[in-house]
Structure formats: C-alpha cells, structure tokens
C-alpha cells in the first residue's frame, strides 16, 4: 500500500489536524474508548467518582442514550482511530430505561463479535458489560481488568487498526 497517498487523503479530509495536548503518546496506557448508556453505566461511572474510587486513566467515555444506539460501526471507528480496546456497556437485562435497547444491542453484538473475530480481530479487545447506576465498583473493576488484559495482548495487527 502506498501510505503517502492514504495520508494525503486523510490530510485532505482533515482526519489529521491540530495537536492540542491530550494523551497522544503511544507508550502510555493503552487507549480504551467506552461507549456507555446514559442511564445505567454513565451513572455507575459517576458513582465511582462520587465514591472517590480510583481506576486507570486510559478510558475515554462517550455517552449515548442507550446501548441500543451504540452502533457496531462506532467500535470499528474507534479501532481505526487507534483505540486498543473498546468497551460497550449499558443497563442489565430487564433494567433498560427504554425497555429493550440493551436486548437488541446484545443480539447485534453477538453476531458482530463473531464476525470481527472471524475476520481476524482479537475479540479480547472488545468488551461488553452490564453496569448499573449503583455499580461504581463494577465500573472500576471492568476498566482496570480490561486495561490489564489489553496490556498483555500483542499489539493489534488486525485490518481495522491503525498501525
């Protein structure tokens, strides 16, 4: 592949632009992007804060109304943008604020994970969890365990990940 062409295209489209601070150094903790629902997991993460629990700094949370809105495309896009791990998290079965968003999402991710794995993506990099608004401690352990798990994996070489 002619990488210079690719870079040209990316530059032209503004995929690479300014450099305003932030954690960019690749040697640091593996970047995790977490897509979470507004009602359970986001509140659970907030509770970890109000309870002053501590966890790894590498997670970046993107809030959505419901796991039903968390499109598998987000996961692929996160890998493309250099994430080493992606977490999708929402309300426990039966607790969905919108009744069934988490159920639909679970079905889709069941198939999507199989597909990703089959196409050569290390599925250990995609985590899915149910974390309720009262489970600040679970949020902490899921993030910490996921971070540690990713650290042990070989650097991602799959087709979606940025080399």
């Amino acid at each position: 592949m002619e990488n210079n062409i690719v870079e040209d295209v990316q530059n032209a489209r503004g995929d690479k632009e300014y450099s305003a601070g932030g954690a960019k150094d690749k040697d640091k903790e593996p970047r995790i992007i977490a897509f979470v629902c507004n009602w359970c997991t986001y509140n659970g993460a907030d509770l970890a804060g109000t309870s002053r629990m501590k966890y790894a700094e590498n997670v970046r949370v993107i809030k959505l109304p419901c796991t039903g809105r968390i499109d598998p495309l987000f996961v692929v896009e996160a890998f493309k943008k250099g994430a080493k791990g992606v977490l999708v998290s929402g309300c426990h079965p039966g607790d969905c604020h919108y009744t069934s968003g988490n159920y639909h999402s679970r079905r889709k991710y069941t198939a999507f994970r199989d597909l990703l794995s089959y196409l050569g993506v290390d599925i250990n990099r995609v985590e899915f969890s149910w974390i309720s608004a009262s489970e600040g401690n679970k949020w902490v352990s899921v993030i910490n365990e996921f971070t540690n798990k990713i650290k042990l994996l070989p650097d991602n070489s799959d087709i979606f990940s940025k080399k």
Binding site: S117, L119, G120, D122, S157
Partner: peptide, 9 residues
C-alpha cells in the same frame, strides 16, 4: 486470530 487476520487481509 493472527492467521485469520492474515488470510482475510
């Protein structure tokens, strides 16, 4: 998974 990745790549 690496070999699958190679295959599909």
């Amino acid at each position: 998974v690496e070999d699958r990745n190679m295959f599909w790549q």
